[in-house]
Every structure is written in structure tokens, then in C-alpha cells.
């Protein structure tokens, strides 16, 4: 197994873990963390895979930097929305009214 392929496979695994978390977890912050794990997996594939000409390829590294900025912006927006949602409804998940009412502010 070559190093680029190993990076790509680990990236794909991280993507799978993140996808599972994004779909199956109900707490919004956990969903957000799962999104970040999935994003890291994608970045790993992006940097790891295109190294086949021996040296390192600078283009994907520049892309990943931009990608990280986008991911941070998305995470920040999501945290603001989740926080506001929690303040208004006292809920930490998107499912019905019954779940997770653990000590929301009055």
C-alpha cells in the first residue's frame, strides 16, 4: 500500500464516520462535530491523493486552506443558529417536542 492511497483511505473512513454521525446523532452540536470530522476526511483525501508525481502538489494545499476557511464560516454560523434556537425553544435537537429538554433557560 502506497502512502497516498493510505491517506485517501483514512480520509474516506473519516468521511464515513462523519456521515454516520451527521445522519444518526440527534444533538445539534454533535451533528456539527460530525460535519467537521467529515470535512477533515474530505480535506485528507484532497491533500493525500494527488501526490503521484513523486513530489507534493501545491494546488490542493491551497484548496484545502480555502476549504478550511469555508468550514470555519459554516461552523460559526451553525453555532450561532444552534445557540439562538436553544435560547428560544430550549431544545438541542431538531426532532419533535419531546426530546432533550434538559434544563433549558426559562
Amino acid at each position: 500500500m502506497t502512502a497516498p492511497l493510505l491517506y485517501a483511505l483514512v480520509g474516506a473512513m473519516l468521511c464515513g464516520i462523519g456521515l454516520f454521525g451527521l445522519l444518526r446523532l440527534s444533538h445539534l452540536l454533535r451533528k456539527l462535530l460530525a460535519f467537521n470530522i467529515m470535512g477533515s476526511g474530505v480535506f485528507l483525501v484532497m491533500v493525500g491523493l494527488p501526490q503521484h508525481q513523486g513530489g507534493q502538489d501545491p494546488v490542493p494545499q491551497a484548496l484545502v486552506l480555502t476549504g478550511i476557511v469555508v468550514a470555519i464560516a459554516a461552523t460559526a454560523l451553525a453555532i450561532v443558529l444552534i445557540r439562538r434556537y436553544y435560547h428560544l425553544s430550549g431544545m438541542t435537537s431538531l426532532e419533535g417536542e419531546t426530546t432533550s429538554r434538559e434544563g433549558g433557560p426559562e
Binding site: C15, F35, V45, M46, L49, P50, V59, G67, A78
Partner: peptide, 20 residues
């Protein structure tokens, strides 16, 4: 937001594979 982010990541993974 969650749907859009998931969609973007799937697209980006495709871009990574295409570039590779």
C-alpha cells in the same frame, strides 16, 4: 444548513477524487 453542508461535502469529495 445541515442539508446544504452535507451536499457541499459530497460535492467537495467528488472534486478531490476528480483532482486526484
Amino acid at each position: 444548513l445541515l442539508a446544504a453542508l452535507l451536499g457541499s461535502l459530497a460535492y467537495l469529495l467528488g472534486v478531490a477524487l476528480m483532482y486526484g
